[in-house]
Amino acid sequence: MNIIELEDVWKIYRMGEVEVPALRGLSLKVEPGEFLAVMGPSGSGKSTAMNMIGCLDIPTKGKVLLEGQNIASLSERELSRIRGRKIGFVFQSHNLYPTLTALENVQLPMRIHEFGEEEIWDRSEELLELVGLSDRAHHYPSQLSGGQSQRVAIARALSTDPALILADEPTGNLDTEAGKEILDIFSTLNARGVTVVMITHDEKIAARASENVRMVDGRLAA
């Protein structure tokens, strides 16, 4: 079964009396174990597509199926819980809580979703080791570099063992070497079976994925 499937998805925004279509019949499948890059310039609809893939928005027309379930049939509370458990988000800005240590930031989603205390500690320590930051566990975001902060964000995204990691321009604020390290982590995770969807405008970054699609004017380019 596909993790996420978009079937003829339209998203139309209304600006006064004018309708502005951001997505125009987008169909896309994300299979388990895939590393997919969604490319496109500004205005191509890729950010709106990310919102659909991440179940952050409901289509105007068409269907978004998460593991076969139509998200339009779910309440906002159900959607919020599914986003928290099924999808791990990594954004361009790492969005770490400045008053929490690296370890506490990784633990936070598990605490929100009421994991057992032993699992919270074991899993958070394992994930920081996975991203090479065991020695920074008790550092605050202000004490970390941009690349280190993004690695903490990846560990946090993995904490609830989601079916999908969704990364939006994950290297956008990083220098070349730090960006390469982040992409290396995604490649390693994918080799271990983690499904990754990465939104990017950069062809060199997209080349690290195993599959690429390009968006133009709210739909996939031929």
Rank of each mutant, 00 (worst) to 15 (best):
I12S: 07
I205P: 00
C55W: 00
R214G: 00
N70Q: 03
F91E: 09
L133N: 10
K63G: 08
L220P: 02
E211G: 00
P59I: 03
I3D: 01
T101Q: 10
N190K: 05
R156P: 03
D202G: 06
Y13N: 14
S93T: 12
E104C: 10
A102D: 13
N173W: 02
Y97R: 05
D57R: 10
I199W: 03
I87Y: 01
N2E: 13
S210F: 00
K29F: 05
T176G: 00
P109C: 09
I165P: 00
T176C: 01
G33F: 01
E125T: 13
A167D: 05
E118Q: 09
M198F: 02
S149G: 14
T195N: 11
G16R: 07
V196I: 15
R24Y: 05
L164K: 01
S80P: 03
R14K: 12
V90Q: 08
L23T: 06
R111T: 15
L56T: 06
R77W: 14
E118T: 07
G33Q: 06
A209N: 03
P98K: 12
D122R: 15
V216T: 09
R81E: 13
L128V: 09
G116T: 09
E211R: 05
D161M: 03
K180I: 03
T176M: 06
S145N: 11
E119H: 10
L23F: 04
S75K: 12
I120T: 14
G179D: 12
R77E: 15
G33A: 07
G193C: 08
N70F: 08
V106D: 09
L28D: 13
R219M: 08
